Simulated scan of single mutants.
Amino acid sequence: MSRKSVFLLAATVVMLYFSIILFMLSPLHGAKSSYYINVNNYMNHFGYRQTPQVHWCKELKWRVPPSPKVTALVSYPGSGNTWLRYLLQQSTGIVTGSIYMDYGLKAHGFPAENMTDGSVLIVKTHGVPPLDSESYKFHSAVLLIRNPRDAILADYNRLYKGHIGTAPKYVFKKRSPNSKISDWAAHVYQQLRDWEGLHYKWLSQFPGAIHIVFYEVLVRETRKELNKILQFLNYTVSEEDMNCAMLNKEGIYRRKKKFQDFDPYTKDMYKGLDKIRQRILRLINVYQKKNNVTFVGLKGYL
């Protein structure tokens, strides 16, 4: 091999290496970002995209001393988990953790990715409650619930365009070879089961205290719901801190609706969505009565 060929090969390897690094730091918009490291996805993206800077009300810090109890922030993907973490960090100045390592979030406002101990305010998870005592030892949980219609669509957008991007319309018609239905339809029917299973297991199997937050209520009554969450976490913030959080509540972590006149769901899909919604609403009612707690009125929130 000639010197020129060796030089070109070395230059290509270096460029590929730095492209991967840059993409790992900017998947808020990138295609098919994941909650886990997926090298194949990074290989398909070679441009660095600037993300707007976050204005924090105060410098973020870890909890000192660490809390002896760890609270989970549970949600199905696409339910507003990142936005709620942002609100909590804005109002308290304490970092929030995650059982995952999302390099894009770590680079854009969430330095405690993959931290699961009491040094963080709360720990993000999209998984079922751990039954193994040696796993993540959650003592309590904030369960963030969003209408499955919107949550499933938001997560599909994330798969194609990252945390705050919107998938193009054509991907909803794509069909894998030898498949009788579109990839979107297959995704919906699988996620209907996953959405129900996640909420069912936390509400019926988790032994600790649970505070339920409906995403739709959080959007409409942000200050009130955020205060309830902080009370559940036994954390007090000043009126000044809360006012600052509300002035900056939008941040950069809420996906803007790109297609106002586009609905990818069919009538059969809506029937499935309604069935699982009703089953989970009934389970929440049972949980409230059993544990003598009251969240918000349930009708119309899912």
Rank of each mutant, 00 (worst) to 15 (best):
F232Q: 01
F232W: 14
F232D: 04
F232N: 08
L233A: 07
L233E: 04
N234I: 10
N234D: 14
Y235N: 09
Y235T: 15
T236L: 05
T236M: 01
T236S: 09
T236F: 01
T236N: 03
T236K: 06
V237M: 00
V237E: 00
V237Q: 00
S238T: 14
S238E: 03
S238I: 08
S238Y: 08
S238N: 03
S238M: 06
E239H: 02
E239P: 05
E239Q: 09
E240F: 09
E240R: 10
D241Q: 07
D241F: 07
D241A: 14
D241K: 04
D241T: 04
M242T: 13
M242S: 05
N243Q: 12
N243L: 05
N243A: 09
N243I: 03
N243H: 11
N243R: 05
C244A: 02
C244E: 02
C244K: 03
C244D: 01
C244Y: 06
A245V: 04
A245G: 01
A245H: 00
M246C: 07
M246E: 03
M246R: 01
M246H: 05
L247S: 06
L247K: 09
N248H: 11
N248C: 09
N248V: 12
K249W: 10
K249R: 13
K249S: 14
K249P: 01
E250I: 15
E250V: 15
E250A: 10
E250F: 14
G251P: 04
G251C: 08
I252A: 00
I252P: 00
Y253N: 05
Y253L: 04
Y253S: 02
R254H: 13
R254D: 05
R254P: 01
R255P: 02
R255G: 04
R255E: 07
K256V: 15
K256D: 09
K256L: 14
K257H: 13
K258H: 11
F259H: 13
F259P: 04
Q260W: 08
Q260F: 09
Q260N: 10
Q260A: 14
Q260H: 13
D261C: 06
D261A: 08
D261K: 10
F262L: 02
D263P: 02
D263I: 08
P264I: 06
P264C: 02
P264M: 03
Y265W: 06
Y265C: 01
Y265D: 03
Y265A: 03
Y265T: 03
Y265I: 09
T266G: 05
T266H: 09
K267R: 10
K267H: 13
K267A: 11
K267T: 13
D268L: 13
D268K: 12
D268M: 10
D268H: 12
D268Q: 13
M269R: 02
M269I: 12
M269S: 03
M269P: 00
M269Y: 10
Y270K: 15
Y270D: 15
K271V: 14
K271G: 07
K271M: 09
